[in-house]
Nucleic acid binder design. Sequence first.
DNA 1: AAGTAACC
DNA 2: CAGG
Length: 200
Amino acid sequence: MTRLNLRGFEIHKGFLSPERQRALVQVLRPVLQAAPLFSPDVPGGGQMSVRMTAAGGYGWFSDKSGYRYIDAHPSGRAWPAIPAEVLGIWETLSGSDRAPECCLFNYYGEGAKMGLHQDKDEADFSYPVVSISLGDDGLLRIGGTSRREKTESIWLNSGDVVVMGGEARLAYHGVDRIRFKSSRLLPKGGRVNLTLRVVT
DNA sequence: AAGTAACC
DNA sequence: CAGG
């Protein structure tokens, strides 16, 4: 376990043991059953290559009209509860007095990526975003609070946890690519990223 | 606008 | 051609 700081991003390499990673995969199965993955449309046309769902009171959503949090899966069913094992990671690393209201579940299949963006659909940026990587390696790109600022990249591996707080809370970030089937955690391959947020 | 593509 |  080593901790790195890259432009305010607190990166806990190897935070989750392989056993803890496997336990997380197990508790996430019923979440996916209750709330199947979908690929949101984005304003201006186009569709994300990442497939996503969520747990908690709110899930992030996007369509032609914009980005927002919604209180139920697009199917109309309530989002499932955030598993206790996930809440425990937030409690250890967030330094927050509030529980997360959203556990966004992003699945990167072969070739999936996510463009540079800010997490700014939440009401209070004083709470950090905690990001958990499981499965295949992903290349995280980190910038500043303006699109013009230089960026730098770091490979995230299964079990790494990143805390985006303080100056990093509104920093641009994205995932340029994954190394498909670089990990054996997920039998079908791919990368799962969980992000915990206080929304309201 | 978390999309793509053009362009440098 | 890869990266920004």
